[in-house]
Design a protein around this nucleic acid. Structure first.
Length: 376
DNA sequence: ATGTCC
């Protein structure tokens, strides 16, 4: 990465001046302290690689969570022109529509502080967790297709949550254009019994306490106050999204080879947005996105039921309310005005959440077993 | 991220 020159723009922006085949500059949003952590990291090189891709508009961007990922860096954001630009599964990520959901409650820390182990144990018992975990539902192919098309709206329609939850979810928990006919039988099979499961890696479901208020107005708007109990859920589209990513990487790589498209990294396999492969991927990606939103909606609902049972409180006294559900692994067709010109772009955003692994729950449970709080 | 190798 000797060719990478990082030019400081201001306190929080660093520019990679174009070199070689870069079509646009790269910009990394980061503090000086975080930048030091990137000195031996390949992710700035990945920002530069993305800048090579056809149809990229203005910049190859990276958010402060930048670190090494598949093809694009995690934290990478890039928009491509709809006429001559590309779409790339590596710009979305393996876990399509992975995201976070913050849920507020009416409880205060004092209401739960003596029962934390009981709560964690109950949640671990009720929420399927870990690699390959399966849920309580086995969807028929017909029902699974509904999940893929309707997303969190399917979940609410089937008793998991309320219309208010959908209002607090990005895109209402449903992205348009999903077509189950464009995903593989294997992806369908893997999705069949994993809806309503947390997964592994850095996925988590945790009990949180509002420790500090930094901005009174924002806190009031979100209905958050000091010492309030909240829940954060971080998860995605499980084996289904992973399989869709795999399937389309293979298909796009074949096409890249066939067309002789030159890429700085084979992990940047992509297709023109307007091509058959590009359109199929968008429709397949939307299926996984909707599956992930249904997944988070169901997990939130079950969390509420578990907390009600464990604390012996009514739904009204628990007062669960979705603050917001925002996803961080997705590509969207969106309208922008750039230098006065209206443009429709294919925007990739590939994010991450702080490392607070689901395995943390496993470790916690191991400790609970060790001190005799739970059996088995 | 992922039935971390169909």
């Amino acid at each position: 990465m000797s060719e990478i020159r990082l030019k400081r723009i201001d306190d929080y922006r660093w520019e990679i001046t174009p070199f070689g085949g870069m079509r646009v500059p790269g910009i990394i949003y980061s503090s000086e302290r975080l930048m030091k952590g990137l000195e031996k990291d390949e992710s700035p090189k990945q920002v530069a690689n993305v800048a090579h891709l056809p149809g990229i508009v203005r910049y190859s961007l990276a958010m402060p969570d930048i670190h090494w990922g598949y093809g694009f860096p995690i934290g990478g954001v890039a928009a491509f022109d709809l006429q001559n630009g590309i779409i790339s599964p590596g710009g979305v990520g393996y876990d399509i529509n992975c995201g976070c959901r913050l849920v507020a409650t009416k409880l205060k820390y004092d209401d739960i502080k003596d029962r934390l182990e009981k709560l964690v144990t109950a949640l671990f018992r009720d929420i399927p967790t870990g690699v390959g975990s399966t849920g309580v539902l086995k969807l028929s192919p017909k029902e699974e297709r509904r999940v893929l098309v309707e997303g969190a709206q399917w979940a609410v329609k089937n008793g998991y949550g309320t219309a208010e939850d959908l209002e607090a979810t990005e895109d209402g928990g449903r992205i348009e254009g999903a077509d189950p006919d464009r995903i593989s039988a294997r992806a369908m099979e893997r999705g069949r019994d994993q809806v309503g499961t947390l997964g592994s890696g850095n996925h988590f479901l945790e009990i949180e306490i509002v420790r500090d208020i930094y901005d009174d107005k924002v806190a009031a708007a979100f209905g958050l106050e000091k010492d309030q109990v909240a829940i954060m859920i971080h998860c995605g589209s499980r084996g289904l999204g992973h399989q869709i990513c795999d399937d389309y990487l293979v298909r796009m790589m074949k096409q890249v080879n066939k067309l002789g498209i030159q890429l700085p990294d084979r992990q940047l396999a992509c297709a023109y947005v307007q091509s058959e492969e590009g359109q199929d991927y968008l429709a397949a990606m939307a299926c996984a996105a909707n599956y992930a939103w249904a997944n988070r909606q169901m997990l939130m609902h079950w969390t509420g039921e578990t907390l009600q049972r464990a604390l012996q409180v009514s739904p009204r006294d628990l007062g669960m309310r979705l603050v917001y559900d925002v996803c961080h692994n997705i590509a969207k067709i969106e309208d922008f005005t750039i230098e006065g010109a209206k443009m429709r772009l294919c925007v990739h955003r590939k994010g991450a959440t702080r490392a607070f692994p689901a395995n943390h729950i496993s470790r916690k449970v191991a400790r609970l077993k060790a001190v005799g709080c739970i059996k088995g």
